[in-house]
Amino acid sequence: MRILILGGTAFLSKEIASQAVAAGHDVTCLARGTTAAPPPGTEWIRADRSTGQAAYQELAGDWDAVIEVARDPKPAREALAALTGRAGHWTFVSSCSAYADNSVPGAAENAPLLPALPAGTLSTPENYGESKVAIEEATLEATHGTAHLCRAGLISGPGDPTDRYGYWPVRFARNSGPVLVPDIGGDPTQVIDVRDLAAWILRAAEEGITGPLNAMGDQVPFADIVSACRKASASQEAAVTASGDWLVEQGVNYWSGPESLPLWLPPHHEGFMARSNRAAKAAGMVLRPWQETMADTLADERARGLGRPRKAGLQPATEERLLRLLHNESGG
């Protein structure tokens, strides 16, 4: 296949490009490349999509498949206008953040979506879900409803730039004292390995699969994640639980970012990491055992440095302070 990836230099899009080359496809990546280059074996068209239609002028011929990973509706619409007439299959990597209601476990692809971001509105992290919905709508309109809308969940695995999933195996592997964890042992987590997601996107393109499909991992209780982290790192550190209310009182953040506890969700998000992935699996999406993702993530984190600055999780000094406070309040 002749495949065009609108990206190809970062995490998911780079993994798609690498797997596509390994499978023998003719792969072109259109990207600025300001921080990294596409994988070896690809043709690299250097272009800045913020320049509008001019970004696509060097692309020649037709494509068996185009893969779009954009977050901003403006360049996504411009790419659709420039390329849909030359693409046999179109994939848009959307997000489970497009759904309007995160409170219902087991929700499938027919669940209501957020309102689309109005045209001309600046796309920001705060309206990420609305931006993805706007691109979905534009994609369906331009492709006459024949695109694959890949609604991805939390993506992790080796090379994860968000530092979320990797926080937990790293924290146990550091062996720097008791580990503060939220009291959510029975709550589900749902992570898809970047390698499995890339393989699914390529398979869907090869087989001409279309429609919205939840590309999400299987549900794993948080307590099992904690146990697997201890096992994978051979850690003897104790896990000290704290209630969600207490953590909020102390200023700990949910989910991601600085001073957070990753995989811990705010109220009314019981379904955010418990969505149905049955349709995608029935269509051919294959998931490796989650323990393999955990082990490979830890190996990657060791290679990158367990003590490196992280984008998500508690700072060591913050965790130590909170553990002391929790100990004192419990009368220990």
Rank of each mutant, 00 (worst) to 15 (best):
I225Q: 09
R321C: 10
S243V: 07
V27W: 06
S123K: 13
P161H: 09
G8C: 01
T189W: 10
T35R: 15
T146D: 13
W90H: 03
E329S: 12
R310E: 12
S233C: 05
L4A: 07
R174W: 13
R321T: 12
V226Q: 06
T143Q: 02
H148T: 11
N110Q: 14
L83D: 13
E292F: 09
A81M: 09
N328P: 00
T9I: 07
A23Q: 12
A31H: 00
N102L: 14
P258K: 11
E109Y: 01
G307H: 10
A142L: 08
E130W: 02
P118I: 06
R151D: 01
V69T: 15
Y165F: 15
E320F: 05
L325V: 10
V220P: 08
G211P: 02
V69Y: 14
P38Q: 07
G33N: 11
D160K: 08
V191E: 07
D193M: 09
G61M: 01
G8T: 00
V191H: 04
R32G: 06
T162E: 13
T189M: 10
P73L: 08
R46H: 10
K14N: 08
S156H: 07
P112D: 03
A279C: 08
L314T: 07
L306I: 06
F272C: 08
C229H: 00
L323H: 02
V93G: 02
H25K: 04
E68D: 15
L325R: 14
I135F: 07
Y254H: 12
L197E: 02
P309Y: 01
L122D: 10
R171W: 00
P178R: 10
S233L: 03
H25P: 09
G153K: 02
A100F: 02
Y165C: 14
S276I: 09
C29D: 03
R275M: 12
M273Q: 14
K311R: 15
E109D: 05
G244Y: 03
P40W: 04
N110T: 14
H148P: 01
E206Y: 07
W264I: 05
E249V: 04
